[in-house]
Amino acid sequence: MFEARLVQGNLLKKVLESLKDLLTEASWDCADTGIQLQAMDNSHVSLVSVQLRADGFDKFRCDRQLSMGMNLTSMSKILRCAANDDIITIKAQDQADNVTFVFESPNQEKVADYEMKLMNLDQEHLGIPETDYAAVIKLPAAEFQRIIKDLSQFGESVVISCTKEGVKFSAAGDIGVGNIKLAQTASVDKEEEAVTIEMQEPVTLTFACRYLNMFTKATCLAPQVTLSMSPEVPLVVEYKIGDMGHVRYYLAPKIED
């Protein structure tokens, strides 16, 4: 028996919004420690990793490990039927071929349940090596979204360059060149408005705008986003899911042949 109840059901709605453009189907791996998902996009350029810890749920029961293969477009359609303040429960029997989503209004006066067929998906989890990143940048998630959106008008790629002075985002194309520089914030009223940079060595990498734009669908999840970069390795774009986990996107850089 698997059952996970989340009073803050809108977190799950937001997680699905942040995945559905990048992934069409994926497996949710459930264990007594929580729920995890790892999947690559169709063109194998990026990888998404989601973690939802058991202790972040209001009720969590997972008698035996199970992997629930789901069509994320369908899951997203179902979750859109839940109101933002609904309590969401996910339920499945052991070795079941379907999953049930239950949405309860806060006053318990409306209860809806939706059943969805599970899929058999080929599991292929990749090993992500432990990496000490050369630069770790934290910035407001909405600021990052704006920067990527603005620079996407100029070209297909964004160059992210991090030095002690700050971080620079650049794009070039037919209409011209755009550069956006962010300095580390000296002092801020709110922690979530801060730009912080932890840098071991300067690093410059080039990434496809298309993917960065899809990652920013997770902006609704968290006030801040963390970018971790090292020379010639994938960028990590991380959004926290409340205090129960994270969505991490890994994006392969564009590299000189």
Partner: peptide, 14 residues
């Protein structure tokens, strides 16, 4: 010109 790398060239299959 830079070429888009594949994520599989960085992360290992089990």
């Amino acid at each position: 010109t830079k070429r888009q790398k594949n994520i599989l060239s960085f992360f290992q299959k089990p």
